[in-house]
Simulated assay, not measured.
Amino acid sequence: MYKLRGHHLLCLLGYRGMGYSAEYIENMTHLHHILRTKPDTIIHLVDGPDHLCKKYPNSGKYHCQDIHIYKRDELILEKLALHEGQKVQWKEIEESIRNYVNPSDISYMCETCSWRSYGVCEEGIHDIHQGKGLRKVK
């Protein structure tokens, strides 16, 4: 079981092997691969730092505790009809994305995200809508 916060559910859709540090990328790639190949994996939805935050580089401002990130988490969980404390399979999260999220929702849900300009999260949502699941990271 992996602990994930709300916004990371969408970050995983757009993940293409880029990140904040080599250690962060290795951690994210590992989790991404597990979820892509084992969609029955249980995710415990948490409020605050999670499995991915553990490897956020210890340099500069630690954005994982920023109030804006908490608000983004809350907005995304609400949009997905999920809630903090819930334990769900990754495939159920993908189903919620199919049912409740459109690619254009990224523009307001993740408005201040520095990764948004790449457009990969919208592509990831589109892939989920088509039943493709997570893209393989090269």
Rank of each mutant, 00 (worst) to 15 (best):
R72N: 08
N58F: 01
I42D: 03
Y56E: 02
I42C: 02
K79A: 13
G85L: 10
E92I: 01
C64S: 05
H30P: 00
L35I: 06
I93G: 08
L45R: 04
S59C: 05
G85P: 08
H33G: 06
R98G: 05
R36E: 09
K79V: 06
T41G: 01
E94S: 14
I69G: 02
L45D: 12
H30R: 15
N102R: 14
P49D: 02
W90N: 02
L35R: 03
Y62I: 03
I76F: 12
S59Y: 09
I42F: 01
H68P: 00
P39C: 02
Y100F: 15
V46Q: 05
G48H: 13
L82K: 03
R72A: 12
D40T: 00
D73F: 11
T41I: 02
N58P: 01
H83I: 10
C53H: 09
I43Q: 06
D40M: 00
D73E: 05
D66G: 01
R36V: 03
S59N: 06
L35K: 04
H33C: 05
L82E: 05
H32S: 07
L75E: 13
L45E: 06
P39V: 05
K38M: 13
I34L: 10
D66I: 05
G60D: 12
G85E: 08
H33T: 14
S59H: 04
L35Y: 04
E94G: 08
L82I: 11
D66K: 01
D50K: 06
R36S: 08
H83N: 13
Q86A: 15
H30W: 13
N102K: 15
Q89R: 14
A81W: 09
I43K: 04
D50W: 09
V88C: 08
K71W: 03
